[in-house]
């Protein structure tokens, strides 16, 4: 069965995202765009995931709790989890391994933590754009061992991507999926980086503002045992983890 997805979305917790990227606004826009599965992936934090779970359920969207982590090499990696609990646990690990530099909202933007009613319940004190000291191999290992999936984000970007920082996608990291922003560039990318041939390619919106959420989404072919929320989420993660792991 084909389902529409967007697995890389930022909320108002990410300093670079607009403050109207509230859990309910994201879920509502996702519904209008016909998206079935949506993942919240703020920079280096999962603190809006509980509210996102509740908001998605209100709008009939299957939520996935996630994070876009910045590795020690400054590679952005999308991390998705099968349960909210696993995501929160990973969030604690990253919190303990992140450079603690106080955010300056006047430069970087606010980092708002919200509840399921879109009310501000806190503000992240430390800048979420700074890197953790977890390298890309450790990140993959930590996420996969928690039953989640990790894949390198926007691999063709000249900064913040695995190709920009490491020159290729190292096989040893164990990634089965990769995110490409501009799918028209895919053929050229596969030619240059043959490892991509055997990988599942996803293309997410990486939205930082509500307008970014309404363009066409890609569809993922899933083998579903039922139409249950947990099954859909598990199937997304199964598909992206690949057969080898």
């Amino acid at each position: 069965m084909k389902i529409k997805y967007d697995l890389h979305i930022h909320s108002c917790l990410s300093p670079c995202a607009e403050n109207d990227m509230t859990p309910n606004n994201i879920a509502g826009m996702a519904m209008l765009g016909g998206i079935r599965v949506a993942a919240l992936t703020d920079h280096n934090s999962v603190k809006n995931c509980p509210a996102f779970y509740d908001a998605c359920r209100k709008y009939g969207i299957v939520p996935i709790a996630g994070m876009e982590i910045t590795t020690a090499e400054e590679i952005h990696v999308v991390c998705l989890f099968a349960t909210l609990e696993a995501a929160m646990e990973f969030g604690e690990l990253v919190d303990s391994r992140r450079m603690k530099i106080k955010n300056r909202a006047d430069i970087f933007g606010q980092q708002l933590i919200m509840n399921a009613q879109d009310e501000v319940i806190g503000e992240e004190e430390y800048l979420l754009l700074s890197a953790s000291d977890l390298d890309v191999f450790t990140v993959a290992k930590e996420v996969f061992s928690r039953g989640g999936v990790a894949y390198p984000a926007h691999i063709e970007k000249p900064t913040d991507s695995i190709i920009a920082m490491l020159g290729d996608i190292p096989k040893e990291a164990g990634f089965f999926a990769a995110e490409v922003k501009d799918l028209t560039a895919l053929d050229a990318l596969i030619e240059k980086y043959p490892i991509l041939e055997g990988m599942t390619i996803v293309s997410d919106s990486d939205s930082h503002m509500l307008e970014g959420l309404v363009d066409d989404r890609r569809e993922l072919e899933l083998e579903l045992l039922s139409d249950d929320e947990n099954e859909i989420r598990d199937a997304v993660i199964r598909t992206l983890r690949g057969p080898s792991i």
Partner: peptide
């Protein structure tokens, strides 16, 4: 060149 590194 690593921004996080420079920041601190």
């Amino acid at each position: 060149d690593l921004l996080s590194w420079v920041m601190g």
